[in-house]
Design a protein around this nucleic acid. Structure first.
Lengths: 214, 214
DNA sequence: AAAATAAATGTAAATATGACAATTAATACC
DNA sequence: GGTATTAATTGTCATATTTACATTTATTTT
């Protein structure tokens, strides 16, 4: 039986949460859109395979990567029996090397503009979205989508896009700051603002802190 | 590559949450304890394989079954490269047919008395426990471990065992009743109680209700 | 100086939590 | 019948959290 991995790669361009899809260059289903994937090799685990695939696609290592679920329907791949271990990955979209776009015919899509996908990839994407919301409500996760240095309004707009709602500015600020995960920098980001927004960064691997936006 | 399933089967005997383990009757690791598992056949999905395995082991169909995670370390099986899709199942321990015990050398273990297990099965069990707690806090799940008809004190002792803590009787009752999922029956269970406890049952598939015990 | 806007702070109602006490009800046992 | 036992429900109260909305302060551009 063939074992594959498929990755839902999320990014945030400052406006919207997006997902990275590729146009397949090989059979079956050439020229159709799909998640980026690959086969698990004899000498690697699924995590290693997913990391390898992501490195190839994005040029980045050490991305936030989480196993989602394994898809095993008998006829999910029309050619040969394949089970696919689905992952989702979070990346700082600005670190993504655009030159790789051409090589893999990759493109970022807004989540409400996703084209038809092959196989059970639509399901994978849906499950990935659900899990992202579910988990981000309890764990500091969405920071992975931002640059190391960002601003509070940007963070808020990310949360708002992920949860498709608006949050109160004051409450959001209080809550997010109370986690103790953010470090306010001296500098400001002056782009498109009179006063300028403080740059903040965050502490990875803080133990045990969880939060939910209000 | 070989694809297998392994199931953490949970039951509740009225006192403690327990897990069903088997003593392997075949190589590798004969006579060692392990989760019940099996190989995914060419004509079945992993869910179907898990259900088949569970049917064989417990005599029961339609158990609550949830995919956990897939384990893929290269050398996890010393004989041949095998990936294993881990599941956890919840069963009403009283429906379990004891006669199957002998056939599979199966035994129920309290969670703090689990023997050494083969391969990465200890990890699977740990992940299953975590997920059970995590999910049961937000979804009506633990009912699956009880008979169709049970009592409130029994439900509470189940929660207390799962979360290894005590809950306030009044608060627990208010909270659990406020979900609207319970139906109080006319009859009572008189075993070991002066007054007798009302039999209750629960409504499956109620939409969207979540709860956490206090 | 005026306008803009980020960031922080204030406040108040509504709701939830958690601990504990008290009451009511049903039944077994003497 | 009376008493003990325990299930089930209800009361209460302090505390914490959530949510909505308003205000203040600070910083910078024009």
């Amino acid at each position: 039986m063939i074992v594959a991995v498929d990755c839902s790669v999320f990014g945030f361009d400052g406006q919207h949460l997006k997902i990275l899809l590729i146009k397949r260059g090989f059979e079956p289903c050439v020229e159709e859109w799909s998640l980026m994937g690959g086969f698990v090799q004899p000498d690697e685990s699924a995590d290693e395979a997913a990391n390898r695939v992501l490195k190839t696609l994005t040029g980045l290592s050490g991305l936030y990567l989480e196993q989602l679920q394994t898809y095993t329907k008998v006829d999910r791949d029309p050619i040969e029996r394949t089970v696919s271990i689905a992952f989702f990955a979070l990346i700082d979209i600005h670190q993504y090397e655009q030159r790789l776009n051409d090589q893999f015919h990759a493109e970022w899509f807004k989540l409400d503009e996703i084209p038809d996908l092959i196989f059970d990839h639509p399901q994978m994407v849906q499950t990935a979205r659900q899990k992202l919301r579910y988990k981000a409500a309890l764990h500091p996760l969405l920071f992975e989508l931002l640059p190391q240095r960002f601003t509070l309004p940007l963070l808020q707009s990310l949360f708002e896009d992920v949860y498709e709602t608006k949050f109160d500015k004051g409450n959001f600020s209080r809550k997010i700051i109370s986690t103790g995960m953010l470090i306010k920098q001296k500098e400001k980001d002056r782009a498109g603002s009179k006063k300028g927004r403080f740059i903040i960064s965050w502490i990875k691997n803080i133990t045990g802190r969880t939060f939910t936006p209000s």
